[in-house]
Design a protein around this nucleic acid. Sequence first.
RNA 1: GCCGGGGUGGUGAAAUCGGUAUACACAGGGGACUUAAAAUCCCCCGGGCGCAAUCCCAUGCGGGUUCGAGUCCCGCCCCCGGCACCA
Length: 827
Amino acid sequence: MSKHADRAYDPAAIERKWQDAWDRNGTNAFTLDQLRTARRPFFNLMMFPYPSAEGLHVGNIYAFTGADVHGRFKRMQGHDVFEPIGFDAFGIHSENFALKTGIHPMELIPANVANFRRQLRRIGGMFDWNHTVDTTDPRYYKWTQWLFLQLFKRGLAEQKEAPVNWCPSDMTVLANEQVIAGMCERCGTPVEQRRIRQWFFRITDYAGRLLENLDHIDWSASTLKAQSNWIGRSEGAELRFPVVPDGGGKAAHPGTGAVISVFTTRPDTVFGASYVVLAPEHPMVDQVTSGPFREAVGDYRTRAREMDLVTRQKAGKEKTGMFTGGYCINPATRKPVPVWIADYVLMDYGTGAIMAVPGHDQRDYEFASRFDLPIVRVVAAPGEAGDTSGVEAYEEPVGTLVNSGSYNGTPVREAKLAIVDDLAARGKAERKVNYRLHDWCISRQRYWGPPIPVIHCDHCGVVPVPEEDLPVVLPRVEDFRPDPSGVSPLARVRDWYEVPCPSCGGDAVRETDVSDTFLDSAWYFLRYPSADFGDRAFDEAVTGRWLPVDAYIGGNEHAVLHLLYSRFVVMALHDMGHLDFEEPYKRFRAHGLIIRDGAKMSKSKGNVIIPDPIIERYGADTFRLYLMFLGPFMEGGDYQDKGISGPRGFLHRLWESIVPRDGALPTDPPDREVERRLHQTIRQVTEQVADLRYNTAIAAMMAYLNVARARGRTPRRDEIEPLVRLAAPFVPHIAEELWQRLGNDGSIFDGARWPGYDPAKAAENRVRVAVQVNGRVRGTVLTPAGSDREEVAALAQAESNVARHLDGAEVRRIIHVQDRLLNFVVG
RNA sequence: GCCGGGGUGGUGAAAUCGGUAUACACAGGGGACUUAAAAUCCCCCGGGCGCAAUCCCAUGCGGGUUCGAGUCCCGCCCCCGGCACCA
């Protein structure tokens, strides 16, 4: 009699049993010693979640399951798979939630984390709970602050003034996403712009390397593309337009030799530059503005400065601007052109000034039309110049130059080089590469984040907190609402921010801004394997063994910021000698998104899936299997409630194939057809799981089980047991149970290797070949595999329907694709 | 506007080195078992004509290349995601 009294598939019971067993036996957790000595380390990383009050959502479970399947697959292939998870728990999201509910984040977050741990355990992920991180734990953010100090020491952290969105009603700084049509998303008040001193990391110093390395890492193509677009390399030139000392009558500083530098990617159009525009914030505005224009220009600057950043930067808005009264010399035509200011020119790109070529730039064209500035065409399109009637500015960089003096007739491509060279000879130009990437502003005028570890001293200036004084602990503050001062709520906590200067010992104050959440997540993967170490951010030996990350799976919503910031941090740590690699993730794959019944899930639509009841009803294995089955993992898919019954039925049939006989399976003679299908299935599942094509791998397993159980037959042990192994990464609990009921001890993930297949056994010996006449299928013939053209043709011609179509026609050609198709081309 | 990814049965989706389009599932229909329901099992299931068929039509639309196109090329339309005055 069996020791397993219960023969019905009871997911809740076996899932509890195996989750307990994994915890008890340390199946998925490494000891420090094991981390130090693992022979085939494989770091399987997934994006750690933000522990919201709502709990894990289906998107999280989808992502984690897909990553977990990969990790379990690698483990069965013999790797030592390290699969940690943690909590990205700082940030504005919890702060706002806390403000709304009145629960302090220091209570809210631990409760949320506890709930997440319960849910993560329940979905059966292979998580190493010995090596988890919580970014809000001082033992973690001590090292986030340490990281800041390293960047500071290296000169990669600096303070500069930058605009922020400010809601005068909520009295708070807003992120760009919180500004909707110029209004605060929460209260609808028009948003203002404030300029404050903030901390920046000089990521732009690394723009070139961050771009070049993209060629050498194995990432999803879409992610690579998003990064390179974000970095946005532009090749062009900086051209110099000398300011006319007495342009509009009375210049402010005559004869100073002032020069306006502009960046352009189209130096070939410089003869068409009929005016120059400065950004409102450009430092030379006062210098070029002449007396009568001063007041109007000043007003314009003030308005531009106060406008919220979102409206200000919106494309397609009507162009505004103001003439400064000043002029400068176009270095190509050597004629004076007027200098304007306009907010469509951005101070933080290029030089903050442009040469306007309205004939060949749509924005300049709109501006010139509005203000009656000259529009000169200097490039003729190939062929007909007159066919540009529908186009306002001709922006294509193809054609030949006109109205360009001695360059007339030169193709654009050549002119670009020649004009820069010639102007450079006169000191009026130089080649230049510009990046769209901006420095990373890490200051947040908020409460719920790690304090930036610097101290401001009247005598010594900015003094970094000594490393031995870390962490700078975020104090518990009951009232952390923002206030009208425009600085962090920490600026109200005097006994926290008043400290002696570490350098001179005099009175000094702490920095009260906290750092960006993206800084917490920019290095968390370094911390996981070193979580045992209290005295260093990451241990050299352990890091050397486990990093860089072997496989990273996550959402493409982080294609740019998180992935770019972490690349920057690793590159900088590499340059400082802390790491011996400069790219954090060898392989990155972006998964798709789950939608439901064709629509994005959202609370307002009421179509959000709550995972807990589904797991309770069907079990984690069924849920996992369905999620992986509903569409291609890297593309996402449509969640349909009824669809879960397919995977559920599959697991039932798998269970029924083994359990009712207590593992005493039939000993009939082997069935060659089933054996062949088994080997084909192993091949297919192995290839597809390795490639994250989970949906088709599952389909192959289902098809195989259908064959093995066809006409009511019960599969032999050697037919079903390999299927249990193939399915194990997807459905770990039932796999463990079936593995045990088949008479094995221990975990299937340690005891069972991933099955191999025998190509000879997978090979079909007879194949059905399609027979076409002029490309249309007219029949099929069954032939021995590997038959040649003549053999197949002979069989095909004997096929009555084929013969009918060939009747009376002359066969001009026969196309043969071995074991697939034969095509008679007739005349 | 720019950059990605897509448009295939009633539905989710297979098939992408050009080679039998619709695997695997869901829903639906029919049947078995059952007092009944649930569960389970079996059969059918792109459209058309039809007794039937590898007869015709069908992979968003229009052209093209090819013996052969869901797949490649040209020109469009639509959906999803990201970026958006970056000179």
